[in-house]
Amino acid sequence: MKLRWQLFELEDQPWFPHVVRQGMMDVLRFMIMWLGIYKPIVPLLRDALAQTGQTHLVDLCSGAGGGIQQIWQQLETQTGQRTTITLTDKFPNLEAYQYLASQSGGALQFETEPVDATAVPARLTGFRTVFSAFHHFPPAAAQAILADAVRQNQGIGVFEGAGKRWHELLLVWLVFPWLILLITPFIRPFRWSRLIFTYVVPFIPVGTVWDGTVSLLRMYTPGHLQTMVNALNAPHYTWHIGRARHWSGTGVLYLIGYPSKLQP
């Protein structure tokens, strides 16, 4: 799947009901953790942190937190070091962030105010990550996210929970609806609204399948990502771009960049 279609996702629309958007993000977070989608990229992220001397991540476009709790657990296990993460978003999901903060004993922190991924406040220093969100941005904005990291001399990792392969569409269409019906009662924090909009009025399953389909079509290929990197004019940065294989047969698209030599 080499082409990219700039279609629309429901959760991006200002008119889309917040309660349904929140439910969809909760489903995504649970599935990412349950399936261990991002486990294959943890060694890559661990090595990048070692190269930059960082033990703190600034997670951009955090949504409902995605698999960030699992990433944190895996990093601490693999590095043997204390790792902390600050969750940020242009529309912070504070209830989800508070839950993750309590579950992690405070290792996962969060910003209560909106944070624009294309212009991150200078006070938020640390290795930047973007999980399951880079495809939301059109090319100019996506390029601006990378450029802002370079301008502020911060490392950045962009990760998408799929490999942009045609067979992944079949998983979204044929497996996701049943999976959502199965897992919804086990998602925490518990919300009655999530049950209502899954089993009574199935806005969450329908919206998740639509947005999952569009997400795959909107994702940037490794070739697209390489073109963005080439345009940054950042010779002091080291870049790694590719696909990491997941046990399910899907892939995880990734772009990792960091200063080869930390600049003052």
Score class of each variant (00 low, 15 high):
Trp247Thr: 08
Pro139His: 03
Tyr199Pro: 06
Thr84Val: 13
Ile68Glu: 15
Phe16Ala: 05
Ala140Asn: 10
Lys39Asn: 12
Gly23Cys: 02
Ile196Glu: 08
Trp5Asn: 04
Ala133Gln: 00
Pro185Cys: 15
Trp178Met: 06
Leu182Val: 11
Val158Glu: 00
Thr77Arg: 15
Pro202Ser: 02
Thr55His: 14
Trp166His: 10
Thr227Asn: 07
Ala122Met: 12
Thr213His: 12
Phe190Arg: 15
Ile32Tyr: 06
Ile183Leu: 11
Asp26Ile: 02
Gly251Glu: 06
Thr221Leu: 05
Ile196Tyr: 15
Leu217Gln: 13
Val130Arg: 01
Ala140Asp: 11
Phe110Gln: 06
Arg165Phe: 12
Arg21Gln: 05
Pro259Thr: 10
Leu57His: 12
Gln109Ile: 11
Phe134Ala: 02
Gln6Arg: 13
Phe8Gly: 00
Gly53Ile: 12
Lys90Arg: 14
Pro92Arg: 11
Thr84Ile: 10
Gln98Asn: 14
Leu28Lys: 03
Glu76Val: 13
Ala144Thr: 04
Leu146His: 00
His167Ser: 07
Leu169Lys: 11
Ala107Gln: 15
Val150Tyr: 05
Gly242Phe: 04
Ile37Asn: 13
Ile85Glu: 07
Val172Thr: 14
Gln109Cys: 13
Trp247Arg: 11
Leu45Asn: 01
Leu45Tyr: 10
Val175Glu: 07
Leu169Ala: 13
Glu76His: 12
Phe131Met: 09
Gly161Met: 02
Gln74Gly: 05
Pro14Glu: 00
Thr227Asp: 10
Tyr220Trp: 03
Gln51Leu: 09
Gly67Ile: 07
Ser104Lys: 05
Gln143Tyr: 11
Val42Met: 13
Ile204Trp: 00
His56Gln: 15
Ile71Cys: 07
Asp12Asn: 11
Ser248Gln: 11
Ile180Met: 10
Ala96Met: 09
Ala147Gln: 15
Leu232Glu: 06
Met24Ser: 07
Thr77Asn: 15
Asp59Met: 09
Tyr237Gly: 01
Leu146Arg: 01
Trp247Glu: 08
Pro177Thr: 04
Ala244Arg: 11
Pro222Val: 05
Gln22Thr: 06
Arg82Trp: 14
Pro177Asp: 09
Pro17Gly: 05
Leu60His: 05
Asn230Ile: 00
Arg151Cys: 11
Ala64Trp: 06
Leu49Cys: 07
His135Ser: 00
Trp5Thr: 06
Gln143Asp: 04
Leu195Pro: 00
Met24Pro: 04
Arg194Pro: 01
Ser260Ala: 13
Asp12Tyr: 00
Gly223Lys: 10
Gln22Trp: 06
Trp247Gln: 09
Phe30His: 14
Met24Ala: 07
Pro222Cys: 06
Asn93Tyr: 08
Pro202His: 08
Gly105Gln: 09
Glu168Lys: 01
Ala96Gly: 05
Val42Asn: 07
Leu174Gly: 00
Ser215His: 02
Ile37Pro: 00
Arg218Glu: 00
Gly63Trp: 03
Thr198Asn: 05
Ala142Leu: 05
Arg194His: 08
Gly23Met: 04
Ser215Ile: 02
Gln152Met: 13
Gly155Tyr: 13
Phe203Thr: 01
Ala147Pro: 08
Pro17Ser: 01
Leu171Ile: 06
Glu111Ser: 15
Gln81Pro: 02
Leu87Cys: 09
Arg165His: 13
Asn233Tyr: 13
Ile71Glu: 09
Phe190Glu: 12
Thr198Arg: 02
Leu35Phe: 15
Leu7Pro: 07
